[in-house]
Design a protein around this nucleic acid. Structure first.
Length: 261
DNA sequence: CGAGGACTAAATGAGGCGCC
DNA sequence: GGCGCCTCATTTAGTCCTCG
Protein backbone atom coordinates (compact mmCIF):
# COMPACT_ATOMS: atom_id res chain seq x y z
CA UNK A 1 0.00 0.00 0.00
CA UNK A 2 0.93 3.63 0.25
CA UNK A 3 1.02 5.55 3.51
CA UNK A 4 3.99 7.85 4.06
CA UNK A 5 5.58 6.21 1.01
CA UNK A 6 5.28 2.76 -0.49
CA UNK A 7 4.79 0.52 2.51
CA UNK A 8 3.29 -2.62 3.95
CA UNK A 9 0.26 -2.15 6.13
CA UNK A 10 -2.16 -4.59 7.68
CA UNK A 11 -5.33 -5.41 5.78
CA UNK A 12 -7.42 -4.17 8.71
CA UNK A 13 -6.27 -0.67 7.72
CA UNK A 14 -7.78 -0.99 4.25
CA UNK A 15 -10.95 1.01 5.03
CA UNK A 16 -8.90 3.86 6.50
CA UNK A 17 -7.22 4.41 3.15
CA UNK A 18 -10.50 4.90 1.27
CA UNK A 19 -9.71 8.60 0.90
CA UNK A 20 -6.30 7.92 -0.56
CA UNK A 21 -7.72 5.53 -3.14
CA UNK A 22 -10.39 8.07 -4.08
CA UNK A 23 -7.70 10.71 -4.40
CA UNK A 24 -5.64 8.50 -6.69
CA UNK A 25 -8.73 7.90 -8.82
CA UNK A 26 -9.23 11.67 -9.10
CA UNK A 27 -5.61 12.10 -10.12
CA UNK A 28 -5.30 9.28 -12.64
CA UNK A 29 -8.69 7.67 -13.19
CA UNK A 30 -9.90 9.68 -16.17
CA UNK A 31 -10.89 7.13 -18.84
CA UNK A 32 -8.94 9.09 -21.47
CA UNK A 33 -5.73 8.72 -19.46
CA UNK A 34 -3.66 6.25 -21.55
CA UNK A 35 -2.99 3.80 -18.68
CA UNK A 36 -6.75 3.78 -17.98
CA UNK A 37 -7.60 3.18 -21.62
CA UNK A 38 -5.82 -0.17 -21.56
CA UNK A 39 -7.08 -1.15 -18.09
CA UNK A 40 -10.00 -3.28 -19.39
CA UNK A 41 -7.50 -5.45 -21.25
CA UNK A 42 -5.34 -5.76 -18.16
CA UNK A 43 -8.32 -6.75 -16.02
CA UNK A 44 -9.36 -9.33 -18.57
CA UNK A 45 -5.96 -11.03 -18.67
CA UNK A 46 -5.71 -11.15 -14.87
CA UNK A 47 -9.30 -12.32 -14.47
CA UNK A 48 -8.84 -15.14 -16.93
CA UNK A 49 -5.23 -16.16 -16.35
CA UNK A 50 -4.46 -15.11 -12.78
CA UNK A 51 -1.84 -12.79 -11.25
CA UNK A 52 0.32 -10.84 -13.71
CA UNK A 53 3.27 -8.49 -13.52
CA UNK A 54 4.50 -5.76 -15.84
CA UNK A 55 6.75 -8.04 -17.85
CA UNK A 56 3.82 -10.30 -18.77
CA UNK A 57 2.43 -7.57 -21.00
CA UNK A 58 4.35 -7.35 -24.21
CA UNK A 59 3.21 -4.00 -25.55
CA UNK A 60 6.01 -1.50 -25.85
CA UNK A 61 4.23 1.89 -25.67
CA UNK A 62 5.89 4.29 -23.24
CA UNK A 63 4.41 7.04 -21.05
CA UNK A 64 6.01 9.73 -18.89
CA UNK A 65 6.49 8.50 -15.37
CA UNK A 66 8.04 9.46 -12.04
CA UNK A 67 11.80 9.69 -11.49
CA UNK A 68 11.89 11.83 -14.61
CA UNK A 69 11.83 8.80 -16.87
CA UNK A 70 9.34 7.21 -19.20
CA UNK A 71 7.98 3.79 -18.38
CA UNK A 72 5.98 1.13 -20.20
CA UNK A 73 2.26 1.80 -20.46
CA UNK A 74 1.36 -1.61 -19.02
CA UNK A 75 3.48 -0.94 -15.97
CA UNK A 76 1.91 2.51 -15.50
CA UNK A 77 -1.52 0.94 -15.75
CA UNK A 78 -0.79 -1.74 -13.11
CA UNK A 79 0.68 0.87 -10.83
CA UNK A 80 -2.28 3.23 -11.13
CA UNK A 81 -4.83 0.46 -10.68
CA UNK A 82 -2.93 -0.62 -7.58
CA UNK A 83 -2.96 2.94 -6.21
CA UNK A 84 -6.72 3.15 -6.82
CA UNK A 85 -7.28 -0.12 -5.00
CA UNK A 86 -8.36 -2.24 -7.97
CA UNK A 87 -5.27 -4.45 -7.88
CA UNK A 88 -3.13 -5.69 -5.00
CA UNK A 89 0.23 -7.39 -4.83
CA UNK A 90 -0.31 -11.14 -4.91
CA UNK A 91 3.38 -12.00 -4.53
CA UNK A 92 6.75 -10.80 -5.67
CA UNK A 93 9.36 -12.34 -7.92
CA UNK A 94 12.54 -10.84 -6.61
CA UNK A 95 11.62 -7.17 -6.39
CA UNK A 96 9.01 -7.29 -9.14
CA UNK A 97 5.37 -7.18 -8.05
CA UNK A 98 2.79 -9.59 -9.36
CA UNK A 99 -0.74 -8.17 -9.13
CA UNK A 100 -4.12 -9.80 -8.70
CA UNK A 101 -7.67 -8.49 -8.43
CA UNK A 102 -8.42 -6.95 -5.04
CA UNK A 103 -11.67 -8.89 -4.89
CA UNK A 104 -9.69 -12.12 -4.90
CA UNK A 105 -7.31 -11.08 -2.15
CA UNK A 106 -9.44 -9.26 0.40
CA UNK A 107 -12.61 -10.47 2.10
CA UNK A 108 -15.77 -8.80 0.81
CA UNK A 109 -16.61 -7.27 4.19
CA UNK A 110 -13.31 -5.44 4.16
CA UNK A 111 -13.72 -4.18 0.59
CA UNK A 112 -17.22 -2.91 1.25
CA UNK A 113 -16.42 -1.51 4.71
CA UNK A 114 -17.08 2.20 5.08
CA UNK A 115 -14.27 4.63 5.81
CA UNK A 116 -14.13 4.74 9.63
CA UNK A 117 -13.22 8.42 9.35
CA UNK A 118 -16.52 10.07 8.55
CA UNK A 119 -15.33 13.64 8.22
CA UNK A 120 -12.25 15.30 6.80
CA UNK A 121 -11.29 16.29 10.32
CA UNK A 122 -11.64 12.71 11.61
CA UNK A 123 -9.32 11.61 8.84
CA UNK A 124 -6.76 14.29 9.62
CA UNK A 125 -6.78 13.40 13.30
CA UNK A 126 -6.35 9.73 12.47
CA UNK A 127 -3.55 10.16 9.99
CA UNK A 128 -1.54 12.75 11.95
CA UNK A 129 -1.87 10.57 15.05
CA UNK A 130 -0.77 7.51 13.10
CA UNK A 131 2.25 9.36 11.74
CA UNK A 132 3.28 10.61 15.19
CA UNK A 133 3.23 6.97 16.25
CA UNK A 134 5.47 6.09 13.33
CA UNK A 135 7.89 8.86 14.17
CA UNK A 136 7.88 8.17 17.89
CA UNK A 137 9.01 11.70 18.61
CA UNK A 138 7.52 14.15 16.14
CA UNK A 139 8.62 17.65 15.27
CA UNK A 140 5.73 19.74 13.91
CA UNK A 141 7.97 21.42 11.31
CA UNK A 142 7.36 20.82 7.64
CA UNK A 143 9.32 17.93 6.25
CA UNK A 144 9.04 14.87 4.03
CA UNK A 145 8.00 12.70 6.94
CA UNK A 146 4.66 14.54 7.04
CA UNK A 147 3.99 13.64 3.43
CA UNK A 148 0.92 11.90 2.00
CA UNK A 149 -1.51 13.10 4.64
CA UNK A 150 -4.27 14.41 2.40
CA UNK A 151 -5.21 18.06 2.71
CA UNK A 152 -2.84 18.71 5.62
CA UNK A 153 -0.39 21.57 5.21
CA UNK A 154 1.75 23.09 7.96
CA UNK A 155 -1.05 25.26 9.32
CA UNK A 156 -3.60 22.44 9.47
CA UNK A 157 -1.02 20.06 10.89
CA UNK A 158 -0.27 22.39 13.77
CA UNK A 159 -3.97 22.78 14.49
CA UNK A 160 -4.45 19.01 14.33
CA UNK A 161 -1.55 18.37 16.69
CA UNK A 162 -3.07 20.85 19.13
CA UNK A 163 -6.43 19.13 18.88
CA UNK A 164 -4.81 15.76 19.60
CA UNK A 165 -3.05 17.19 22.64
CA UNK A 166 -6.34 18.64 23.88
CA UNK A 167 -8.05 15.29 23.49
CA UNK A 168 -5.30 13.57 25.48
CA UNK A 169 -4.02 11.41 22.64
CA UNK A 170 -0.73 13.25 22.26
CA UNK A 171 1.56 15.04 24.65
CA UNK A 172 3.83 18.01 23.91
CA UNK A 173 7.38 17.45 25.15
CA UNK A 174 10.78 19.15 25.13
CA UNK A 175 14.07 17.36 24.63
CA UNK A 176 17.16 18.11 26.73
CA UNK A 177 19.77 19.79 24.58
CA UNK A 178 17.30 20.89 21.91
CA UNK A 179 16.22 24.39 22.93
CA UNK A 180 13.07 26.23 21.85
CA UNK A 181 11.51 23.26 20.14
CA UNK A 182 8.33 21.40 21.01
CA UNK A 183 7.90 17.78 20.01
CA UNK A 184 4.95 15.43 20.21
CA UNK A 185 4.67 11.87 21.43
CA UNK A 186 1.73 9.54 21.83
CA UNK A 187 0.41 9.35 25.37
CA UNK A 188 0.28 5.59 24.97
CA UNK A 189 4.06 5.52 24.42
CA UNK A 190 4.77 7.16 27.77
CA UNK A 191 4.96 3.92 29.81
CA UNK A 192 7.47 2.50 27.33
CA UNK A 193 9.65 5.61 27.56
CA UNK A 194 9.53 5.51 31.35
CA UNK A 195 10.35 1.82 31.44
CA UNK A 196 13.38 2.36 29.22
CA UNK A 197 14.61 5.22 31.40
CA UNK A 198 14.29 3.12 34.57
CA UNK A 199 16.28 0.23 33.17
CA UNK A 200 19.75 0.64 34.65
CA UNK A 201 22.16 -0.63 32.05
CA UNK A 202 20.52 -2.27 29.08
CA UNK A 203 22.72 -4.92 27.55
CA UNK A 204 24.40 -3.16 24.65
CA UNK A 205 24.36 -4.74 21.23
CA UNK A 206 25.13 -3.53 17.73
CA UNK A 207 22.24 -2.93 15.36
CA UNK A 208 22.38 -2.05 11.66
CA UNK A 209 19.68 0.47 10.79
CA UNK A 210 17.99 0.33 7.39
CA UNK A 211 17.94 3.68 5.51
CA UNK A 212 14.14 3.89 5.59
CA UNK A 213 13.75 2.79 9.22
CA UNK A 214 11.35 5.00 11.19
CA UNK A 215 14.24 5.97 13.44
CA UNK A 216 15.75 7.85 10.48
CA UNK A 217 12.61 9.55 9.17
CA UNK A 218 13.66 12.82 10.78
CA UNK A 219 17.34 13.12 9.93
CA UNK A 220 17.49 16.61 11.41
CA UNK A 221 16.38 15.24 14.74
CA UNK A 222 18.93 12.43 14.59
CA UNK A 223 21.62 15.02 14.01
CA UNK A 224 20.51 17.18 16.91
CA UNK A 225 19.90 14.44 19.45
CA UNK A 226 22.58 11.91 18.52
CA UNK A 227 24.99 14.23 16.74
CA UNK A 228 24.94 11.86 13.80
CA UNK A 229 24.72 13.15 10.24
CA UNK A 230 23.08 10.58 8.04
CA UNK A 231 22.40 10.75 4.32
CA UNK A 232 21.36 7.71 2.33
CA UNK A 233 23.73 8.14 -0.60
CA UNK A 234 21.88 5.92 -3.05
CA UNK A 235 20.49 8.99 -4.86
CA UNK A 236 23.69 11.00 -4.83
CA UNK A 237 25.83 11.12 -7.98
CA UNK A 238 28.80 8.86 -7.42
CA UNK A 239 31.42 11.62 -7.19
CA UNK A 240 29.48 13.37 -4.42
CA UNK A 241 29.22 10.30 -2.19
CA UNK A 242 31.13 10.45 1.05
CA UNK A 243 30.67 6.93 2.38
CA UNK A 244 29.06 4.78 -0.32
CA UNK A 245 25.96 3.86 -2.24
CA UNK A 246 24.11 2.06 0.53
CA UNK A 247 25.63 3.40 3.79
CA UNK A 248 23.90 2.09 6.87
CA UNK A 249 24.19 3.60 10.34
CA UNK A 250 25.23 1.29 13.16
CA UNK A 251 23.89 1.71 16.68
CA UNK A 252 25.64 0.28 19.70
CA UNK A 253 23.62 0.53 22.88
CA UNK A 254 21.92 3.92 22.62
CA UNK A 255 24.42 5.67 20.40
CA UNK A 256 25.19 5.87 16.70
CA UNK A 257 28.77 4.63 16.52
CA UNK A 258 29.61 3.69 12.94
CA UNK A 259 28.57 3.34 9.31
CA UNK A 260 28.90 0.41 6.94
CA UNK A 261 28.58 0.21 3.22
C1' DC B 1 7.39 26.75 3.42
C1' DG B 2 6.57 24.06 -0.63
C1' DA B 3 7.20 23.08 -5.54
C1' DG B 4 10.29 21.30 -8.78
C1' DG B 5 14.27 19.16 -10.57
C1' DA B 6 18.19 15.93 -10.52
C1' DC B 7 19.75 11.71 -9.32
C1' DT B 8 21.43 5.20 -8.87
C1' DA B 9 22.74 0.32 -9.13
C1' DA B 10 21.48 -4.51 -7.95
C1' DA B 11 18.63 -8.15 -9.36
C1' DT B 12 16.01 -10.56 -12.58
C1' DG B 13 14.59 -12.58 -16.77
C1' DA B 14 14.26 -12.60 -21.83
C1' DG B 15 16.51 -13.57 -25.88
C1' DG B 16 20.49 -14.50 -28.93
C1' DC B 17 24.22 -17.49 -29.91
C1' DG B 18 27.13 -21.58 -30.38
C1' DC B 19 27.26 -26.20 -29.81
C1' DC B 20 25.96 -31.06 -29.16
C1' DG C 1 15.44 -29.42 -29.36
C1' DG C 2 17.83 -27.98 -25.48
C1' DC C 3 21.65 -26.51 -22.62
C1' DG C 4 25.01 -23.05 -20.99
C1' DC C 5 26.64 -18.66 -21.42
C1' DC C 6 26.39 -14.01 -22.42
C1' DT C 7 24.26 -9.40 -23.04
C1' DC C 8 20.69 -6.22 -22.70
C1' DA C 9 16.43 -4.23 -21.03
C1' DT C 10 13.47 -3.68 -17.27
C1' DT C 11 12.14 -2.98 -12.62
C1' DT C 12 12.53 -1.30 -8.07
C1' DA C 13 12.66 2.36 -4.28
C1' DG C 14 12.64 8.48 -2.14
C1' DT C 15 16.12 12.15 -0.84
C1' DC C 16 17.94 16.44 -1.01
C1' DC C 17 18.93 20.84 -2.67
C1' DT C 18 17.59 25.25 -4.82
C1' DC C 19 14.68 28.89 -5.61
C1' DG C 20 10.69 32.01 -5.31
Amino acid sequence: GFDKMASIHITADWPYFTRRRAYMREQHGDPSNPPMEISPAIFQVIREHGPRSSIDFKRKDMVDWSWGKPTRLARASLEILNAMGELLIHHRVGTRRVFDLTERLLPTELISALDPNETEKDYQNWHVFRRVGGLGLASPNASEYWGAILGVNTEIRRATLKRLVDSGDLMAVAVDGVPRQTFFIRMADLPVIEAVQKKRSPRARAVFIAPLDNLLWDRNLVRRIFNFDYVWEIYKPEVERKYGYYVLPVIYGDRFVARVD
